[in-house]
Each structure stands twice: as C-alpha cells, then as structure tokens.
Design a protein around this nucleic acid. Structure first.
Length: 354
DNA sequence: CCGATGATGAAGTATCCCTG
DNA sequence: CAGGGATACTTCATCATCGG
C-alpha cells in the first residue's frame, strides 16, 4: 500500500513530463524515456486499475506536466531520460533527495503530505550538524546523553514486563534479548511502554531533550555555522532541485534554491533551539532571517523528535526532523506557480478514495 | 610454517521512509 | 505517537594468499 502510493505518485509525476495529454494515454504508450522495467509498468497498470489512488496520480501527473512546461523546468522540451530511484535507497552519499533524475540534470523530489525533512541518527543531527557521512554507528543516543535515566527506565521495563533472565543494562542487550523484548511488547494489548513507567520515561524524555538541545547549541556556534546548519536542515544544497507534490492544503511546485541564491534574497539572523520534550524527546528549532525584497524579518521553524523506531530498547533511537512552517513559506523554496491563489483543491479527493 | 593481510559472503543492524 | 517494511551498510567469520 505504502509502496503503491509512492510508486504511483513518483512515476505519474515522471509521466507528466513525457508529452502525453493524460495519464491513461501515457500509461498505454509506455514511453521509453522513463527508464523502468516491464515489471514496473505492469505494476503501475495494476495500481491504476484498482482506482484507489487515481486522484493523487492525476495530481502527480499534472505536477509533472507543469514542471515540463515551466521555464524554470524543462521549458517545453520532452526529456531524453527519466531515471527513477525506484523507492529504494541510493548507495553512497546522496547530496540531494531526488526521486527522479531528468536528463541526468534535473533532480526532483516527490513529496506527498510529508513534513519530514530528515530521518536520521540523532548524533548526525546534534554532533555532525547533518554534514559528514554518519560516523556514529552503534551509538545509542539515549544511552549517550542520559545514561542514568536510560538504564533506570530499562531496568524497570524489564521488571514490569516480567523478563527475568535478561541483560542488566541496555548496552548489554544481545539480539536474542532484543527478540524477547520485541515479543513481550507485541503481546501487550496497548502499544508503547506500560503506563506505570510514565514517570521514568518522562525523566528520560526531559534529560534527552535538554542534553540534545545543549549539544546542538554548542555545535551551532557563530552565525556562519548557524546559517549553514539551517541550509542543511532545509535541504538547501549546492545544486538546485525541485519539489513536486502536495502539502496539507494545496499542490506544491517548488524549486529549492542554492545557498548562493539564498544570500541574494535573504539575510540570515539566527538559529535557535530549545528543549521541548513532551510525549517524546523533542527539540524545537527556529530561524530568523530578513527577507531583503520585503525588508521584513521572518521566521521559519520546525522540530526534532528523538524516538525509538522499532519499539522501546529494541534498536537505537532515531531523529525525525520536522518542518512546521508550510513549504511554500520557507526561505529558499521558490514557488514555480506564482499566481497568488493556487487552484482550488479538495484535499479529501487526493487521499485514498475507496 | 605461521602470522599478517586481503577477499568474500552471511548475518545483523541502522537508517530511510511510510502508515494508521 | 507508535509500529513496521525494506535495504544499504557494518561487522564478523571464514578462507585464501603472501612473505618472511
């Protein structure tokens, strides 16, 4: 299901650039500029036949067509190659989050109702500033920044779940232990940690939130560092790329500019972070900048959540970096469609229809 | 011969991305 | 807020090769 949705939106976007008038027509023509295998074509046909995702697919197609005709995009040219990252992870460093690569040059990221900017190792956010290749493998953030609270919560969890022969500390967990933990959590009716652990979990949340914010603050240092980190947070890289998709309200057709262009339009003021753990360890971030054309100060904000991604203690936590400002209002995300009022758009019609 | 080094493959894990 | 699938990447074990 998840895959169907991703697949249809990304590939329908690609098909929108192939010069066909409708999605149906493009699907029948199977244009070979879109370099995918016959399995993928068959699968696309199957997804379309179910009719469930037709509305999103049509939107994606029109986004692709729009990009194809726009002067900042293909300006009416039909591309020679469209490569699809295929929903899989691209090996090596990925400088730009592109799902589609058009004519080996234009990079397009398809985003459908997603506010997530990064989903990565916490150390990568708070210690590397999202720069280098992650060098902190086997680095459990909870253990590193709040060892006492982490170990205490672990000990109580094991006790409450009744897992007697078990590693004494979370660092000593073997894969066997993890399996047991996973199974114990799975058996429980209510997901998450047992309620009687709320108090101890809250302590971990507070400590992790504050320690992470503190480390991040140290890393942020001076204004130049802050500005660079803001760019990375916002996924502003040294080459321009496009975001085509929908956000909460409307279609999104954006070009993400480079730092060079950014400096021509904005003046960076500050990036501040603040611990805000409730429910999960959380750090809010907020950047202030001056919009040079408008002569006004503005803000862009988001937050980072640190969370277990596969049940408590089963694996190291990861960091989810969220964007709380609407995409179209982010400094550096240029709308391709500069009409102030976007076409009316009914969000419901774009979500899975039965 | 034997320790060091390199190649290879399998297994486990960390990370990315998504859903409800 | 929680859970989970998928897969690149690490790690670990094993075996081959090399050089003193």
């Amino acid at each position: 299901m998840a895959d169907d949705r991703t697949k249809i939106t990304e590939l329908a976007t690609a098909l929108g650039m192939t010069g066909h008038n409708t999605l149906q027509e493009a699907l029948e023509a199977r244009p070979d500029v879109l370099e995918i295998g016959s399995d993928d074509w068959d699968d696309l046909a199957r997804i379309v036949r179910t009719g469930r995702l037709t509305a999103v697919a049509e939107t994606a197609f029109s986004n692709g067509a729009y990009f194809g005709s726009h002067t900042d995009g293909l300006a009416g040219r039909i591309p020679q190659h469209i490569e699809w990252s295929g929903g899989r992870r691209i090996p090596g460093d990925r400088p730009v989050p592109a799902d589609l690569l058009v004519d080996r040059v234009y990079m397009i990221s398809c985003k459908y109702l997603s506010r997530i900017l990064h989903n990565t190792a916490p150390a990568h956010v708070f210690l590397d500033g999202l720069v280098a290749a992650p060098g902190y493998r086997g680095f459990n953030w909870f253990q590193e920044v709040a060892p006492d609270a982490h170990e205490a919560l672990y000990a109580r969890t094991v006790e409450v779940l009744g897992l007697v022969p078990m590693a004494k500390t979370p660092q000593e967990l073997t894969s066997e232990h993890r399996k047991k933990l996973k199974a114990a959590f799975r058996e429980r009716a209510v997901p998450g940690l047992p309620a009687e652990l709320d108090h101890q979990y809250q302590r971990l949340i507070d400590e992790v939130s504050h320690a992470s914010a503190e480390l991040w603050r140290e890393l942020l240092g001076g204004r130049a560092d802050q500005e660079r980190i803001l760019w990375r947070l916002l996924r502003i890289y040294s080459s321009t790329y496009f975001i085509l998709g929908i956000d909460q309200r409307r279609t999104m057709r954006l070009r993400v500019i480079t730092p060079w262009e950014w400096r021509q339009s904005y003046q960076f003021v500050s990036l501040t972070v603040r611990a805000a753990g409730r429910g999960q360890p959380r750090i809010d971030w907020e950047a202030t900048y001056r919009d040079l054309a408008a002569g006004q100060r503005r803000r862009v904000r988001g937050h980072v959540e640190i969370r277990w991604s596969h049940r408590p203690f089963c694996e190291p936590p990861e960091a989810k970096v969220y964007l709380d400002t609407p995409h179209a209002q982010v400094p550096g995300y240029r709308r391709l469609d500069h009409t102030d009022e976007p076409p009316p758009y009914d969000q419901q019609s774009l979500i899975d229809c039965p």
